[in-house]
Simulated assay, not measured.
Amino acid sequence: MIITRKIELDYGHTLPNSFSFCNQLHGHRGIVEATVEGSIIDRKGDAEEGMVMDFKFLNDIMMTHIHDILDHGFAVWKDDHEDLEFICKRNKRVVITNEPPTAECLAKWAFNQIKPHLPENVTLNNLRWYETPNNWADYTGND
């Protein structure tokens, strides 16, 4: 069985090498969807009987390890020294990335943020990062 949970957050970033407006400091209303897979729990009387996992627990993991780290913060590339210095002076919530903080990079980051916190019997199949309603990246853990 496969289930998906969605959260929303506001974040900023810049892509200094971009030829478009993305080379400016700017923000997005991001949407993050985590799709997990597992067997339906069939332990009689268990609070999660009939579920892969409780949506509330998946939400808690996503909120703690993605939202609460990046919401109203900035994702900035470690090699973007000028913006990194400025952003770190101004913001408490900063995610420093090893590559430019594109939707693809942030999908991979978010996948790796939540995967270790899932129950042992649940597999993270896909992390979808919406940068805008029309643009998103999917990461499946396969590089």
Rank of each mutant, 00 (worst) to 15 (best):
138 D>R: 03
44 K>F: 14
132 T>H: 03
26 H>S: 07
131 E>K: 00
68 D>G: 04
34 A>V: 09
44 K>Q: 15
8 E>G: 13
89 K>F: 09
141 G>F: 05
65 H>F: 14
110 A>W: 00
113 Q>F: 00
139 Y>M: 01
135 N>C: 12
95 V>E: 08
22 C>S: 13
63 M>C: 08
96 I>W: 02
133 P>K: 07
139 Y>W: 04
44 K>A: 15
71 D>Q: 07
77 W>H: 07
60 D>L: 14
51 M>N: 10
74 F>H: 04
95 V>F: 07
102 T>M: 03
11 Y>F: 15
90 R>N: 12
115 K>F: 03
12 G>K: 02
131 E>Q: 03
94 V>Q: 01
41 I>C: 15
112 N>D: 05
44 K>N: 14
51 M>P: 10
98 N>D: 13
60 D>H: 13
33 E>T: 11
85 E>V: 12
43 R>Y: 11
76 V>Y: 01
84 L>S: 07
54 D>M: 11
138 D>G: 04
28 H>M: 12
15 L>V: 09
37 E>M: 12
53 M>K: 11
36 V>S: 05
5 R>Y: 14
62 M>G: 05
89 K>M: 13
62 M>N: 06
120 E>C: 05
86 F>E: 07
76 V>D: 02
113 Q>D: 00
79 D>F: 05
9 L>E: 03
30 G>F: 10
17 N>Q: 14
24 Q>N: 14
126 N>K: 10
27 G>W: 10
99 E>Q: 10
91 N>G: 00
33 E>S: 10
122 V>Q: 01
78 K>M: 07
137 A>R: 01
53 M>A: 12
71 D>K: 06
119 P>M: 04
6 K>P: 06
9 L>S: 04
66 I>P: 03
63 M>A: 11
97 T>E: 04
136 W>F: 13
66 I>K: 06
27 G>R: 12
49 E>R: 11
130 Y>R: 01
19 F>Q: 15
129 W>A: 01
96 I>V: 15
89 K>P: 04
12 G>W: 03
74 F>E: 01
101 P>I: 03
19 F>N: 14
114 I>M: 01
87 I>K: 00
5 R>N: 12
30 G>S: 15
133 P>D: 05
132 T>M: 04
14 T>A: 12
107 A>W: 01
5 R>K: 15
106 L>F: 02
36 V>G: 05
44 K>Y: 13
53 M>E: 08
101 P>G: 02
42 D>N: 14
128 R>I: 06
99 E>D: 08
79 D>N: 11
16 P>D: 06
121 N>I: 00
50 G>M: 12
96 I>N: 01
123 T>W: 00
20 S>P: 07
48 E>H: 09
111 F>A: 00
48 E>N: 14
14 T>R: 15
64 T>C: 08
74 F>C: 08
53 M>C: 12
75 A>T: 03
135 N>R: 08
67 H>G: 01
121 N>S: 08
67 H>W: 08
92 K>A: 09
140 T>D: 05
108 K>S: 02
72 H>M: 07
30 G>H: 11
7 I>P: 03
2 I>N: 14
41 I>L: 13
4 T>M: 07
121 N>E: 04
130 Y>N: 03
143 D>I: 04
80 D>A: 08
76 V>A: 03
84 L>E: 04
128 R>E: 06
61 I>E: 06
49 E>N: 15
15 L>S: 05
1 M>D: 14
121 N>D: 07
114 I>K: 00
65 H>G: 06
5 R>H: 15
79 D>Q: 09
113 Q>T: 00
15 L>N: 06
17 N>I: 10
